[in-house]
Amino acid sequence: MNISWQGVFPALTTKFTAEGTLDHAAFKHNLQAQLEAGVDGIILGGSLGEASTLTVVEKEELVERAVNLLEGKVPVVLNIAEGSTREAVRIAEHAAELGASGLMLLPPMRYKADDRETAEYFKTIARSTELPIMIYNNPIDYKIEVTLDMFEELLQFENIQAVKESTRDVSNVTRLRNRFGDRIKILCGVDTLAVEELVMGADGWVAGLVCAFPRETVAIYRLVKAGRLDEARTLFRWFLPLLELDLHPKLVQYIKLAEVHTGLGTEHVRAPRLPLVGAERERVEQIITDALAVRPQLPDYLAL
């Protein structure tokens, strides 16, 4: 399946049972909610998906199940976050066999590669697969920035097609567009900046709170792209306190708690993460319940 790299791509949480195994029923329930809300693709095994705690076998199982459940309705993108180039290549090669439609690539993990090393890491993976690739550029959390000059090299590969723009600098959307035109698709990777980046020309949104609020997320995207900015702003103002939960180191626990409150998931996480307790839990729950108490009526956004 080709990927247009446009629209809303949820970075899905990984659902676990109380015993710590993959919760296939909860995964299916959330996936169906995303599809019904109108998402344009899904991403598995990202930071929000607790990638660092998943085995390779579990990641492969998630891809296979998602491909079977979605039946080609939207593309399935697998995130690759590895310390070894060899292992990243192996996963990329196998992803196509499992039915994945594309890949999202983080820079090398655990080693702070320089620009040359980082570019070569991405190039080596791109050479190993025909799958379309989105580069995840998040220097805030992963300490490596993919610069414009590095993208100049990377875009020589036809299958490197998009960037998850998470520098938290809205102007980078314009820098990328000025330098590369439409050669690269730009997807906002920071929930709190989505409207600003979409207005400035981003093509899509790799979203986090969409896991708990899929309809609201897709509605904002479609309203912005339809030019109905007043409606998009109003909805985004309601959403912002929730979206800010995506900016915390405990974003996994925060968003999973939101999924519980909207009936789309469970709180189960894998150690070293632990469920929220005490004052922190009360604070996050208050944000969620306050928002749900005034949850807005949505327009018929799917008709846009």
Rank of each mutant, 00 (worst) to 15 (best):
Q6T: 13
T13I: 14
T17W: 00
E19P: 02
L22A: 11
D23G: 02
H24C: 00
A25W: 01
A26R: 09
K28G: 00
H29K: 15
L31E: 02
L35D: 01
L35Y: 05
L35A: 09
E36M: 07
G38Q: 07
S47Y: 07
A51T: 13
S52P: 00
S52W: 10
L54A: 04
E58S: 05
E58A: 03
K59I: 07
E60F: 12
E61W: 12
E64V: 12
N68S: 15
E71T: 12
G72N: 11
G72C: 11
P75H: 06
V77K: 06
N79L: 13
I80R: 07
I80V: 07
E82I: 04
E82N: 11
G83Q: 13
T85Q: 04
E87L: 15
I91V: 10
H94Q: 14
A95D: 12
G102K: 10
L103G: 02
L105W: 08
L105I: 09
P107M: 10
P108T: 03
K112V: 12
K112G: 05
A113F: 05
Y121I: 02
F122V: 09
T129P: 04
E130L: 14
E130I: 13
L131H: 05
P132M: 06
P132H: 01
I133W: 03
I135D: 02
Y136M: 09
N138D: 12
D141C: 10
D141P: 00
E145T: 13
L148I: 14
M150P: 08
F151Q: 03
L154E: 10
L155Y: 10
Q161S: 02
V163L: 09
S166R: 03
S166H: 03
V170K: 12
V170T: 14
S171Q: 14
S171I: 08
N172R: 15
T174R: 13
T174H: 09
F180P: 07
K185H: 14
K185W: 11
L187F: 06
A194F: 09
E197G: 01
L198C: 00
M200I: 01
M200F: 13
W205Y: 11
V206D: 03
G208T: 09
A212K: 03
R215T: 08
T217P: 10
I220M: 08
V224L: 03
R228W: 05
D230F: 11
A232H: 03
F236E: 12
L243V: 08
E244C: 11
E244Q: 15
L247F: 00
Y254A: 09
I255G: 11
A258T: 08
V260H: 00
V260K: 08
L264H: 01
G265W: 08
G265R: 04
T266G: 14
V269N: 10
V269S: 10
R270F: 05
L274K: 11
G278Q: 01
A279F: 06
Q286F: 05
A291G: 10
Y301K: 11
L304F: 10
L304N: 06
